[in-house]
Design a protein around this nucleic acid. Structure first.
Lengths: 166, 166
DNA sequence: AACAACGTTTGAAAAAAATCAAACGTAAAA
DNA sequence: TTTTACGTTTGATTTTTTTCAAACGTTGTT
């Protein structure tokens, strides 16, 4: 194995572990890493071959990745039969948005408890107030971050555009 | 089952599912919910009984929760043999800090790839730059959030202190 | 219309994770 | 010192998740 190949394998591996750490399937991370790595879209066959898995799970994982807007299907004129996939340009932003949904769910749980819990349960009520404050503030900062990121992304895009024009 | 009990069970359940959604063991969520609910510390026996599990897994889960600083052991004079646990006052902040570690890991991965990848691989290099920008900005906002939260917490604490004094 | 090349679905098999019961070690109580 | 009440560890068991191979349906190709 060349040095390049070893690095590539290692990186795919670490994406898998990172995805797992977030409670997702390792294979999702592998596919994502593969597509980040690949300058051109890959067919399902190519993905299965490169990862040494069979079609079944890859097909399902690809669907989940599409649902989460981490990868997308592209139309490749060269072969009309096959589906080709590439990384979603805003993959990280979209992954973050998926995470934001989990946070919103925490806020929902806190609201629900606050509503249901008798006000005379001082200790519990205090803790839930805390939780609610925390996740509301967190949501605020998440949105701030997204707004600032979108700005920064635009700046970065303009820069690389002007480079191309040279 | 009384209405209260039903609500309590439902909430414990939803904590379990929330924890699972974050890739953690359901049981962790159950224990956390139980301790948030309980105004006084609970012994391991009480936790196992209330959740209908055996001691083994509860013991392990409790250790993991302590490692993550989501619950803590307290010394209860009434029974010197038993260990008592209560919710960590900064549980949400600490859970968030644990999450921050995952984000830092993403940044690390991006840095590592950037370092290893030949600069002439334009597409890949561009994507990795994106990733690195994204997670660095994210870390920044995470820290902002923590700082603001700590301020807000202090404000909230002062308020409840003054209430007590009345 | 028949065939071929796909992706998806499905039921079984394998792998991983969670759980239990019992054995074990430890420290307080007798 | 002995006994007892606990928490932890361990190996087996159960449950859940992941994976595979094959059957299936669909759509482009001949």
């Amino acid at each position: 194995m060349t040095h390049e190949e070893r690095v590539r394998k290692e990186i795919i591996q670490s994406f898998g572990e990172a995805y797992k750490a977030f409670g997702l399937n390792k294979l999702m991370g592998y596919v994502v890493a593969l597509l980040i790595y690949s300058p051109k879209p890959l067919s399902l066959d190519e993905i299965t071959k490169q990862l040494g898995r069979s079609k079944g799970p890859v097909s399902q994982i690809v669907r989940r990745l599409r649902d989460r807007k981490l990868i997308r299907k592209v139309w490749e004129p060269e072969n009309n039969r096959k589906d080709y996939y590439e990384i979603e340009p805003e993959i990280f932003e979209n992954a973050f948005r998926n995470n934001l949904e989990l946070i919103k769910n925490n806020t929902r749980i806190a609201s629900y408890i606050k509503e249901k819990v008798p006000a005379d349960e001082k200790v519990l009520a205090g803790r839930i107030d805390d939780m609610l404050h925390f996740y509301k503030l967190m949501e605020k900062h998440y949105r701030n971050f997204l707004a600032e990121w979108i700005e920064e992304r635009n700046r970065l895009m303009l820069k690389s555009e002007s480079k191309k024009r040279k």
